[in-house]
Design a protein around this nucleic acid. Sequence first.
DNA 1: GATTTATACGAACGATCGTACTATTTTGCT
DNA 2: AGCAAAATAGTACGATCGTTCGTATAAATC
Lengths: 196, 196
Amino acid sequence: MSKGEQTRDAILDIALAKASQVGLGALSIGELAKEAGMSKSGLFAHFDSKENLQLEVMKSAAQRFIDQIVTPALRAPRGEPRVRALFENWFQWAKDSKLPGGCLFIAAATELDDQPGPLRDFLVGSQRDWLATFAQAAKIGVDEKHFRSDLDVEMFSRRVYSIFLAYHHFARLLHMSDAEAQARAEFDSLLAQSRA
Amino acid sequence: MSKGEQTRDAILDIALAKASQVGLGALSIGELAKEAGMSKSGLFAHFDSKENLQLEVMKSAAQRFIDQIVTPALRAPRGEPRVRALFENWFQWAKDSKLPGGCLFIAAATELDDQPGPLRDFLVGSQRDWLATFAQAAKIGVDEKHFRSDLDVEMFSRRVYSIFLAYHHFARLLHMSDAEAQARAEFDSLLAQSRA
DNA sequence: GATTTATACGAACGATCGTACTATTTTGCT
DNA sequence: AGCAAAATAGTACGATCGTTCGTATAAATC
């Protein structure tokens, strides 16, 4: 890895952490440069524009997401175990120290939902992929006869998403200490009513 | 109502709409002044600081919320009808033309969850109140024997919140046209399993 | 080790930010 | 109508914004 690539990655690390806390829009090149210990222009040169920097932050987050959630879960046995692994890894993601402000995508969702452009487009694409991934894992669960044959897997994945959104909201904003346990209970109950 | 109060209200109207779209942090006094057709300093004089402006925006949203959701629902019969009214009014709130960017509190939640201060404090208080209001309405439903006597009303209100968060996410970001119908179905199903 | 290329810096740009003052206009009251 | 108070405008401030440019230094290639 060249010098440029590695400082670029270091910048994205810092920017990702910051964006999870203050949002993508509140990222400032000057401030990032200060935190990265380099000049504003030196940092800027890596991205050519602020919007592109934001986009790269989201792309790196998406890659991280795949590496930490999806790929490891594919090593779990097909069916319910894999669905559980996806859910479990998702939790770890939201608590990752690289994301001190919680899941970047959830923060970006409310920030970008009314702002058309490449940022929003990328986010929407990622979210669709993720929902589809979860639905696909559930479908395998049906094929493996772990789940009911009439299970609506799209609805299933939306419900899991709903559980996660609530967890994020209650834990991060309201500091409910039992939010995680609640979410796990909801997920278990969803699994129970999905089983064959 | 004095001249000052009415321009102040007009400003807050504009600011509320804007904040629902771009977030509280992205509000700019200069831009608001332009939209309100007045000078930057003239507008500023009404609020003394930007943070106070943001706070007043949230306070006016909270007041609106009470007027449009809570108070009207209290006119519905105690028990399940009132719970339904709260939920229904909540939907209308999120689709109110005064909030082109959707529910301000949901947008503010992810924006402020890592930024301590009076803004966050007020938001947390509002959210707690709202959850408690919903739980209280559910409790009356238990008393009226509409709902199971062993219903956990706090969990009930969290579940409703979860449904609403998902609706907001899927409808606003992913533009799922059936998000509202899905949410209503989930709510109905929650009611069904809560009934005596 | 020399040369080319990549990377970072420093200074400056115009624009906009939030805020502070002073002046001018408008409003409400007697 | 006249007067005090309230409301708005105007101007200016230092700071920071994203971006551009020319230059220096470091790294990679030969």
